[in-house]
């Protein structure tokens, strides 16, 4: 599942090589629209809901985003 999320982040951010430890600031495109696209994806794909979206803004790396999704799935 993490691979799936990372693939999606690569697609959203228009970045060729994305790994778990890639920093969000190093992605080609990671702005508010990218974050909106990301929560739409996690909602439709994993039925994940966020009480507070600030946690997404606070995320530093791709791994942080993966963890946020996984935590909410369990």
């Amino acid at each position: 599942m993490e691979e799936q999320i990372i693939e999606k982040i690569a697609e959203i951010s228009e970045t060729d090589v994305v790994k778990k430890d890639t920093l969000l600031k190093d992605l080609e495109v990671w702005d508010s629209l990218a974050m909106i696209t990301f929560i739409v994806y996690t909602n439709s794909e994993f039925n994940v809901k966020f009480d507070n979206v600030d946690v997404l803004r606070d995320a530093v790396s791709v791994g942080d985003l993966c963890n946020l999704v996984v935590e909410r799935m369990s």
């Binding site: 508010s32 629209l33 974050m35 909106i36 929560i39 739409v40 909602n43 809901k49 979206v53």
Partner: peptide
């Protein structure tokens, strides 16, 4: 407008 918060509001 906090677009991310509004989208989250819509989805939840």
């Amino acid at each position: 407008m906090d677009g991310l918060a509004i989208m989250n509001f819509a989805l939840t």
